[in-house]
Design a protein around this nucleic acid. Sequence first.
DNA 1: GTATAAACTTTGACTAATCAAAGTCAAGTA
DNA 2: TACTTGACTTTGATTAGTCAAAGTTTATAC
Lengths: 229, 229
Amino acid sequence: MRRARKQINQMPTPTVENYLKHILVLSLESGSTEVSMGRVAKELLVTPGTATSMVKNLSQGGWLNYYPRKGVCLTRKGKKLAMNILRRHRLLETFLVETLGLDWSEIHAEAEELEHAISEKVLEKLDQFLGRPRQDPHGHPIPTKGGVINRPSSQALINCKAGMKVRIDSIVDQESNFLKFAREKRLLPGQEVRILQHEKEADAITLQVGKGSPFSMGSRSSEKILVRV
Amino acid sequence: MRRARKQINQMPTPTVENYLKHILVLSLESGSTEVSMGRVAKELLVTPGTATSMVKNLSQGGWLNYYPRKGVCLTRKGKKLAMNILRRHRLLETFLVETLGLDWSEIHAEAEELEHAISEKVLEKLDQFLGRPRQDPHGHPIPTKGGVINRPSSQALINCKAGMKVRIDSIVDQESNFLKFAREKRLLPGQEVRILQHEKEADAITLQVGKGSPFSMGSRSSEKILVRV
DNA sequence: GTATAAACTTTGACTAATCAAAGTCAAGTA
DNA sequence: TACTTGACTTTGATTAGTCAAAGTTTATAC
Ligand SMILES: [Mn+2]
Ligand SMILES: [Mn+2]
Ligand SMILES: [Mn+2]
Ligand SMILES: [Mn+2]
């Protein structure tokens, strides 16, 4: 059913869009352009065999370069499309929270579907309507129309030393329960946080959000929160 | 990729949703519950063979009853889902025009994609945000959450007699150029129209919209405009 | 150096959706 | 009653995307 028309100007399928977007996010998170097949398969919740076969198609289509048993690396064309999907995803998340008032713990799944259905034209109107926001409700930067992300670098909360005073940049994890916890503790983008203690061997960090009461987090949680100094 | 989960609670695919919605619209337009395979195939832009095979699956799934060489007839379950898709479609169209300011001649295609990606939760918020509208920009009634359409009956403009004063109910055709023409002539839902002449054999009707200057339309066009007295 | 195991690829099978083309049916015409 | 024709169905093939399970490679351990 998906708009077929002629051989000409074949739209990428939602599956293609998802693979490219997730590969982009993985490469942004790791800081390396090359992403292993194992990570691709995990991220997309498919078996390794499926990932391999799909990645071969993507390579065929010029979306990425595939280095067998090494990994994949987006081409310029692939990165451009992936950035565009990411832009759609994050603008939609912003709309769902800002305009419709949905909870930030449930918007990710919604945007995951809508990002493949929204046209360039509607996207532009939406961007305008929202006042050209620069980040989504989780604090993630929204790529520009040109497909660029630029913003101050951030570090994981777990890497902060006692005594530091930082500001929350973004929440990496999209898992619903974690997002609910984060909101409850006021761990929201923009909030100021003071690091009270950080014992490396205890694998825990104690902090104070704004003027709230102090509490502790393990590394599992606190590596999912990015901050700036 | 489309959310697969377990065998449990399998979501209908966009294709299934499209078939059911179009069959519903065809049956509403014709006033008969039974719709022929030929019309189904035409409406969905697929070959007759494709329509037959798809309709068999839908029948298998309990969405409709298939009477070979006669046609199909939605079951209660099928009608309920179809009404729900129609609701999504028309609410989305309303949103695209009212909130984002898109042109009414281009929203149909957009909504055709978005209707399959929007969740029940987002739909409810959208309905609330829009102030629970009862009709879409083309004048079509928006089914209630319960899946019901009720509204005064309407007739085609072509069937009106000279001297009648009617009000435009809705525009049946979704074709972009026709919609542009309709707007140009102020043939919009709610507008008052006076029938000046109607010569059956000339296959033309002459009318005046509001206080505008009179003009004529053939039956091809004027049967696509529904009015109330 | 060989053994082991994790990571990856290949193979074979399956489902949903589609088309082209061949086949069938049923109405109306002669 | 037989013929013709348009509407419909069947058949066989194709594509995208997926999994299970078998096979291969490579890094590391011993
Ligand atoms: Mn997605
Ligand atoms: Mn986000
Ligand atoms: Mn649709
Ligand atoms: Mn409409």
